[in-house]
Amino acid sequence: MIIGAFQDGETGGFTMGNIEALRSPAALDTLRKSVLLAGSTALLGGVLGAVLSYLIVSLGERSVLRRATLSLAGVLAQFGGVTPAFARISLLGFSGLLTEALGGWVYGSGWLYGLNGLIVVYTYFQVPLMVIVFTPAIEGLRPQLREAAVNLGATPCSTGGWSGSRCSRRRSSGRCCCCSPTCVRGLRHGRRPGQPGATRSSRC
């Protein structure tokens, strides 16, 4: 790859032409759009994913809804590509469900086929990916943190937002805790002794 990047396509000699070509307006514009897309979907996915995983963790371990969410998140996070595109087409395409329900203006305005539309589709697999990353981290949070914060007058909202983010950041930045309920279970095993009991009492 490195050799190919500096090779002239026709003569095979050394050239910087390929690198120069990257500075063309078209290339720069696509790069700008990609960065914009990556940044906005990362932000949206991160925030929404954190909220959703906090919600499903608060449902308790045996909740069917929580299992279903985690399974679906595992699948949707892997199916980036063809499938979300099909989902968008069947929902908002020319004869899509929402287009027919709301009338033609959704499709007609065309905003879905620009950057905004892509952001909507990308969050469709970014949020599940973030749920998979965050859930083990939030499950591993020490419940004492929340109890302490609540004692000091914090609302559930600020507890989750402030102390939660400080702890889960450490875990989610260092490594990607991924995949499936299995991992979630495993990480739960890895917690410090004495914690599971405390969890139960604080949940009631």
Partner: peptide, 14 residues
């Protein structure tokens, strides 16, 4: 709604 609407519409379309 956000996650199931696309799935429902896929099912409906198919």
């Amino acid at each position: 709604v956000y996650f199931f609407l696309p799935l429902v519409s896929m099912a409906n379309y198919s």
